[in-house]
Amino acid sequence: MTHTVLVTGVSRHIGARVASALAADPDISRVIGVDTVPPPSLTRDGGISLGRTEFVRVDLRSPDIAQVIAAADIDTVVHMSLVSAPSKNGGRAAMKEHNVIGTMQLLGACQRSATVRRVVVRSTTAVYGSSPRDPAVFTEDLEPHEGPVHGYAKDAAEVEGYVRGFARRRPDVVVSLLRFANFMGPGVDSPLTRYFTQPVLPTVFGFDPRLQFVHEDDAVEVLRRMATEDHPGTYNVAGAGVLLLSQCARRAGRPTLPLLSPAFKVLGGAVRRIGLVEYSPEQVRLMSHGRAVDISRLEAELGWKPKFTTGAAFDDFLRSRGLRPLGGVRA
């Protein structure tokens, strides 16, 4: 059977890597990549080769996406186009519109389509929130005590709602919803990776959160398998184990600056306005209470374990940025 795969969000790192991994698969006849901006140039901006991916510039918020899906007889949709931080010129409103309205348009187009057989949606473990009242380790079917009320996490929770609605209306389509922990790796550029490359790491006084990362290679592999095999359901995707924030800072050889949580918020707002780093309210909560997820459902479904543990993923990121602990390399 020939496959035609649509990948959204190919102009960003993970999306581009997924598109190129799918393009390298001989069983897939066509890979169509869409995004609102063209992919970064290979030579100038260090973009990633998309292989034989055909790029179409589409604004997901517009109904144009339906035409792309109809015209190309797409049978698999990999929806990666979730923005985790507001862009400098767009702001939060544009980000929300991109995430939520974009997903609605895409799912609406899929619902109409007679050819789409499989939909894979990227979500985030941020939908579990971070709270002192929640269990230490989240499984997929756990209802968080306090759901996300801000930013990216709220968008993701809304997106998940639409995805579940779509799955109900089109039971014949295989829907996989993937909740990724924070991406980590040499090519990842996220608020969290930017945070760890600062000279001094502000932390919330009296709290040492548990953090969990997924290595970009593992994320790409999970997405590739979800796009080529049937694995309906919701899955957490993370590297095994956790790292404490203090442990991350020590491994990175960066001093921490503990701030009382109101000060942390004020400082966060200030640097956000300058556009340096993102300190959203949900990030402050993460920096206080942390979050860890259970990945046994994914491991059982795929019969596969992520190659990188959380610690190994972080170490790989540190190596690529030339960060090392005080006194050289770890034993």
Binding site: R210, G241, L243, R250, G290, L326, G327
Partner: peptide, 17 residues
């Protein structure tokens, strides 16, 4: 001390060090 300073130790998923 070296392990502590370089972050080379394990905590379990509950944060137990």
């Amino acid at each position: 001390l070296r392990r502590r300073v370089t972050g080379d130790y394990e905590v379990d998923e509950f944060g137990y060090d």
